[in-house]
Amino acid sequence: MKEVPVLEAHDLCASYRRRPVLHGVDVALPKGVLVGLLGPNGAGKSSFLKAVMGELKPDSGWVKLFGEPVSRARHRVAYVPQRESVDWDFPVTVADVAMMGTYGGLAWWRRAGAQERGRAMEALDRVGMASFARQPIGELSGGQQQRVFLARALAQDSELLLMDEPFAGVDAATEESIVDVLRELRSAGRTVLVVHHDLQTARRYFDLLMILNLRVVAFGATEEVLTSGNLDAAYGGRLTLLNEVASRSVVGGKM
C-alpha cells in the first residue's frame, strides 16, 4: 500500500485581497525529506505555507495533511515564521518562546511543569541558545532570533516543519548550524518544507525542490529540477494568459 503523503495538495487555488496567489497547485510530499520552496517574490510561497496551515482558505481544490483535512491534523505541524511578522516587543524571554512549543498536548487547566521545561531547554540546547534562556527576544541578533523559533518548533516535536525564509538576514555560521539541525530531523523521519531564496545553496541543502510561480513550475529531485528551462519559467515573469485566467476566476464568483 502506498504510504500516505505527509502533505498533499490537489488543484489548489487561492487568492488574497482579490489577487490570485496560487493556481492549480498539485504536489505531494513524502516522509523524511528536506524540501525547498523557491520562486520569485510574490509567487505565492508564503501563501502556500498559510494554506497548508489552514490560515488561508482555498478558493478551490484542497490540501491534506497525513491524509486528513487540515483542520484535523494541524497540531502535527510546526511553523517557523518570517522574522518580519514577529512582534519583537512582546514581553517574553527566549525560554518563554521555546516553552510555547510544548503547550500543544497540555490541557488548558494544567500548569506547564518540569517535563515541558525540560523539553524546551533541550530544544534550546540543540540550537545553541540555552545560555540565552532569560534574555528578552527583542535583544537578540537576527540569527539568534531565528534559532529561538526553531527551538520552539523542535520542542513541539511535530512530523512536519514549515519554515518561511529562515535564512534571510542570517549569518553564515547560523545558517550552517540550522541546516545541520534540519538534516537531523530528516534522519529522524520528519519532513521539512523551507521557503528559500538562494538557488546556489538550494542545491546543497534540499532533497526535493518545488518551484512556485502562482502555479507549480517544477517539482522533484533537486538535480532534475534546477534546469535553466524551469528557472526561466519561474523567474522570467508570469505567463500572462495563466495570470489572466487566474484573476478572472478569483473575481468572477469563486470567492
Partner: peptide, 10 residues
Amino acid sequence: FDPQHARLLG
C-alpha cells in the same frame, strides 16, 4: 504572541 502558532497548537 503568535496567533498562527496558537492555531496550530489547537
